[in-house]
Amino acid sequence: MPVFHTKTIESILEPVAQQVSRLVILHEEAEDGNPMPDLERPVMAVSRAVANLVKVGRETINSSDDPILKQDMPAALMRVEGASKLLEEASAMLKQDPLSGSARKKLIEGSRGILQGTSALLLCFDESEVRKIIRECKRVLDYLAVAEVIETMEDLVQFLKDLSPCLSKVSREVGGREKELTHQVHREILIRCLDQVKTLAPILICSMKIFIHIIAQGGKGAEEAAENRNYLAQRMTDEINEIIRVLQLTTYDEEEWD
């Protein structure tokens, strides 16, 4: 099972995660007697980068209309900031005593903290993106719910005008999301559900047309036509609900890579 939930998160965090693991091993092997180098300059570079990140993060929090992001992001920013302070403290301690064991521990703790904090930030953002996609999926569900009250061609035309751009957006965004996921099974489910939605949509519209023609001519079969239409609308609804469910799944487990 992949550790990182999306390919973007994986590409950003994996190299650093690997390096932190290697350094922890190195430190455990060379516990005594090796003086640490002067790390003031690289630590200061990290501090500056963190300060920029925190500034951008705070601006994002202030301008966002996503209440969950506004709630979750500050803690992640604080984690990164706190970890950066640990690195600064460790660097200062090592200047005084290059053999300091507690300084080395702070370095490792600070590095891990930055990794955890940036991971939390990326996850926070990723979840916000998923919520946007789900909002669009729910708009499609809202339209599907009114399919049964469409009884004239004019209404059907309007229905189609409203539904089509919404469906196209869902198709684009879910398709893009599927490509980002690292979990193969989730990807396959999204692909399958999306294919079903694309197949069912024109058939649903057709069934709605048939229903409208039948009731316009006052002929028999209106009930069966309505049942058929409702069945197709329900199938599409089920597929969209499955997409929403899978979008919210995650393979991310903080303890796994900790």
Binding site: T8, I12, L13, P15, V16, Q19, V20, R22, L23, L26, H27, A30, N34, M36, P37, L39, P42, V43, A45, V46, A49, V50, N52, L53, V56, G57, T60, S63, V80, L87, L107, S111, I114, L115, T118, L121, L122, F125, S128, E129
Partner: peptide, 28 residues
């Protein structure tokens, strides 16, 4: 060990910049 730590801190620096880019990109 020196090279290891400097590499890690450089990598962390890059990591932070990439996260910042992600935020800026998605925010726009």
């Amino acid at each position: 060990l020196r090279v290891g730590w400097e590499q890690l801190l450089t990598s962390i620096n890059r990591n932070i910049n990439e996260v910042e880019n992600q935020i800026l990109t998605r925010d726009s």
